[in-house]
Design a protein around this nucleic acid. Structure first.
Lengths: 339, 339
DNA sequence: TCCGCTCTTGTTAGCGCTAACATTCTGAGT
DNA sequence: ACTCAGAATGTTAGCGCTAACAAGAGCGGA
């Protein structure tokens, strides 16, 4: 920086002023400084800047370190929103899903001197750890946590998973289905719990029996395993006529299992998923599913984070933003078979 | 830090020594310092440390900002490998694929004072920009770039995409197919180019005609569109008996198009993809595909990066590491129909 | 012409840490 | 007891930057 100052014939402080867009710099001087910066290819040292301003313009993202569609898409969206706001993004993914790992990762992030944290924490346990960590930095948890309790430095943002499940269930109900089963995901995940609860509520509201098949995981393999069981029941005549799968991977496993048993979708059984994967429209048949507004979520998360930093009072509800999912109707749902 | 020093009754420098595992500290002193750190909940300021050591223990990842399976998996793998080595990870994703955006993102990363960059740059243009940027920091490009030219600070690491395509093609050839078409991906991508070239080479080696269908993109929709065209040709009797799809998304589009035309896979036509998506095994039929060793790639990238930093001479070949993909045979490939 | 104001620029200090050097302590050898 | 090497600890300086204050320059009004 002092080289630049020398070349421009000013003091280093004036250079700093130019860099920080300080108002009281004569245009001519500014130009000379800018020229010197250009000539020397000078780049300001962020570490020094962070040291003196105690601001890193970096936000941390804590997430689960696998390629699950939901979290991955959310991370991408947050990242993009952060960059749009001029923030850098430091990602820390959890390999193991336990509290210790979450605490460690959180510590790492904080150690980095980030300005805020966005936690993409679909897991019940991770969310809890973050809440209890008593973070000093602004934090936003992206999760439809029913126990969400915003504080002055902690906010929540989510997509309404209950709405997703209700929309799916009611789409099926509207088609005339009454025996609507649910193949649930991994129950350590908030999303799994919420979708399950809302489907169950929608069924019970109408006095319908709610049969749950616990797949125990989000993968196609889990759906496939349940699909074989369900196929047996359908063939035996006492199975469901429609299934709400906790996500599209499970749904594709279901589709596959039914296909193997010559059960036609949607003629013999309807299937709805959640997520709308890149290729869900090209499954056989094209999958009716619930799409989540990931981009909007990312933006909402950043807005909430910046809001905390700016000292904005938290919104009244428990969530700072609740985004609505969207039902995408394709070919895997139809009225139930006659009789 | 001085608080800790006071509480432990030592100088701040001794605290620093304890923190940095300096050998010449009496065990008793060390313990007292550690206790003081614990009591005060002290965390060392990374910005100050970075300033004085000019080391941030952060590596930057430059990638394309979409959810494409390959890049996303690679990023995840690099991230995990970096963390295992005690590095933080700062991600910068390109929204647009152009040179300007790539240069800007690179600049951002460098400005952050990172210790190294891993570029997950499947795009021809991005790789070129990085090469020409004349980066001062160690950089590793993860791409099967045929023009790879390692330098003292720039290394290449890749999965052998030609091998992937050759394995796929030869699997089909071994099954007896002779009319093996290729549905190519987005040609701005190195992977697309490489897979295309290797398939073509394998065909031409045997004097077979190589018919290419340019899907123009990686999505299922692209595959579907080409699939309809190919289906027409197969029905007309002059289509291919097997197809090598540039990735699994394209393959699923193909599968879907064939299913719509009542063409059976693999009886009427075989399909091979590349990637092995989470649910590829559950496609209808289960997709034969090429799996890439992402985890190993991430580790290789970090190893290469650390190698540069440690002043290790670059390896003799143009690539620092070339990893081998793996053919996963499932149900979408079989011998060609008789006649 | 001179005062007093504002605009512009320079000077100084210090963010929290580590490297380098300075000092003190310890204990084996005489 | 006394020396001296080497271990343990302390002191000082400075990384590159910004904030706070200081000083100089320019200008209108009396």
């Amino acid at each position: 920086m002092s080289d630049v100052a020398t070349l421009a014939g000013v003091s280093h402080q004036t250079v700093s002023r130019v860099l920080n867009d300080h108002p009281n710099v004569r245009p001519g001087t500014k130009e000379r400084v800018l020229a010197a910066i250009e000539e020397l290819g000078y780049r300001r040292n962020r570490a020094a800047r962070a040291l003196v301003t105690s601001q890193s313009s970096t936000i941390g993202i804590l997430t689960v370190g696998n390629a699950n569609f939901g979290p991955a898409s959310t991370v991408l969206a947050v990242e993009s929103a952060a960059r749009a706001q001029g923030y850098f993004v430091s990602v820390s993914s959890l390999e193991a899903f336990d509290a210790v790992a979450a605490r460690t990762a959180l510590g790492h992030l904080v150690d980095q001197g980030i300005d805020g944290i966005v936690v993409v924490a679909p897991l019940v346990e991770v969310a809890r750890v973050v809440e209890e960590a008593g973070l000093q930095v602004p934090a936003v948890i992206v999760a439809a946590n029913p126990d969400a309790a915003a504080t002055d430095t902690l906010r929540y943002v989510c997509t309404d998973q209950r709405r997703a499940a209700r929309d799916a269930t009611e789409h099926l109900l509207g088609l005339g289905h009454r025996r609507i089963a649910h193949v649930s995901g991994e129950m350590a995940w908030i999303d799994a719990l919420e979708r399950n609860a809302a489907w169950r509520a929608a069924m019970e509201e109408r006095g319908l029996e709610a049969t749950e098949y616990a797949a125990g995981g989000w993968a196609a393999a889990n759906g496939y395993r349940m699909g074989r069981r369900i196929a047996d029941e359908i063939v035996a005549g006492d199975g469901p006529t429609a299934i709400f799968a906790a996500n599209d991977y499970i749904a594709i496993g279901l589709l596959r299992a039914f296909w193997e048993r010559d059960l036609r979708v949607p003629e013999d059984v309807s299937v709805v998923g959640v997520d709308d994967l890149q290729d869900s429209a090209y499954f056989i048949p094209g999958l009716t599913t619930i799409r989540q507004p990931f981009t909007a979520m990312g933006q909402a998360a950043m807005r909430a984070l910046l809001g905390i930093a700016a000292g904005q009072p938290r919104s009244e509800g428990r969530f700072d933003a609740v985004l609505e999912p969207e039902l995408i109707v394709r070919d895997s749902t139809a009225p139930p078979p006659a009789g």
